[in-house]
Simulated scan of single mutants.
Amino acid sequence: MRLDFGIYTRIGLNLLFWAFYFIYPFLRFRYTGEHSITYEEIGFYFLVYGFVLYLNNLVLLPQYLKKHNLRKYLLILLPIMLSVAFFEAYVNKTLLQTCSCEGPNSTYALYNFIHLGILLVLFSAVPVLLNYSAKLKDLERAETDRLEAELKFLKAQVNPHLLFNSLNSIYSYALKKASETPEMVLKLSDLLRYMLYEADKHKVELQKEIEYLNDYIDLQKMRKDGFKVNFEIIGDIEHYSIAPMILINFVENAFKYIDPFQPEINLSLVAQNKTIFFSCENSFNKDSGKSNLLNEQGGLGLKNAKQLLHAFYGERYQLDIHKSDQSFNVKLLITNDEVYNH
């Protein structure tokens, strides 16, 4: 059977503890003449103290750490320690006769009790710390799993109606035998491929995210005639990466709440100085029904984007949203060093 590194470590710590406890006092007392410590005394201490320390570490302490019943733990441990303290006092003064202390056994037993308590605390420190570390890892793992589930849920809400609307449009074009039908199918296929194979990653190449945005824009322009979309890209985008499915929320929101009488969207993306700046501005009509929905809810896409940004970048981003009577503008600045690929 192969032992793991943790077992070797625990064995080493145990040997180090007993070596420090016995070897140093033995050498000091034996060669300075302060105390005539014997091998019998060493064997006695090892058996008695070892019984208490290992009983605690292997049986009592694990039960306490599992159930956190301090009263039951102390009701079992303290009587054992008291019994050992008095037993040690008796053996040292009558059988081994190595104790030069004077006074009643109770006084010597109290000293033994305190001494054993200190040893118990020191000997239990490692398993307690290991248990605490394991619980922290479990909490971190649980928090990571929760965040992963939350991210998947948020990403699943991105473009929930895109597939159905696009299929309806493709169906209409197919009935007319329009020449745009194959290209719409291809664009939709690219979108779905990205959402299936890239969206689960923590970050993707900025170039891929831009291609995804362009495919979405092209598909929307095919579905809705007269839309004017300008997309300006500045910087060496091949050296940058970004968390997926964030920018699409702003673009989708722009198409959803655009002024139907003057449908225009201006997009800008700048990648430089280890930062990513994204701007999305769309025409807006405060008198439209969609305007009222945006005022009340702020747009589901914008809420998703804020949650995703916080999950991926914490406080290392700036998001400004401004709405006027004629336009709706979103500006995002990501300052996380991880966006730049060296």
Rank of each mutant, 00 (worst) to 15 (best):
Y313E: 01
L58I: 09
F46C: 12
H342K: 14
N131V: 05
L116N: 06
Y240G: 00
I170R: 00
Q307N: 11
S288R: 05
A89N: 05
P260A: 04
E281P: 00
L206Y: 09
S279I: 02
Y31R: 06
I118H: 00
Q297I: 07
N266D: 07
M222A: 12
R10Q: 09
K177L: 12
F278K: 09
G289A: 08
K152S: 06
Q297H: 12
F44G: 09
V84G: 02
N249S: 10
F29Y: 10
L191V: 15
A149V: 13
Y45K: 14
M195S: 15
F261R: 08
N336E: 11
S166V: 08
Q318K: 13
D287W: 04
Y132V: 13
P79F: 07
L60R: 05
G33P: 05
L60G: 07
I170V: 13
H342M: 09
R30Y: 14
E150T: 11
K177A: 14
H68C: 09
F227I: 10
F113G: 05
Y49W: 07
A199Y: 03
K67W: 04
L122E: 01
D320L: 12
L15C: 11
S166K: 06
S291P: 05
L269A: 06
L65N: 08
L60P: 04
H68M: 14
Y194N: 03
N249Y: 05
G103A: 06
N292I: 02
F51A: 15
I118V: 12
E338Q: 12
F86W: 08
D236K: 11
E198Y: 08
M245V: 12
Y240C: 03
L47M: 08
A142E: 09
D145M: 09
E211T: 07
T38E: 00
D320H: 13
Y64G: 04
L267T: 02
T94M: 02
H239F: 04
K135Y: 11
L110C: 07
G226D: 01
L16Q: 02
N304R: 05
I234E: 10
K93R: 15
H202I: 05
D190Y: 10
L13R: 04
N266S: 11
Q262C: 11
I170E: 02
G117N: 07
V52G: 07
T181H: 03
S124F: 04
T32I: 03
L196P: 00
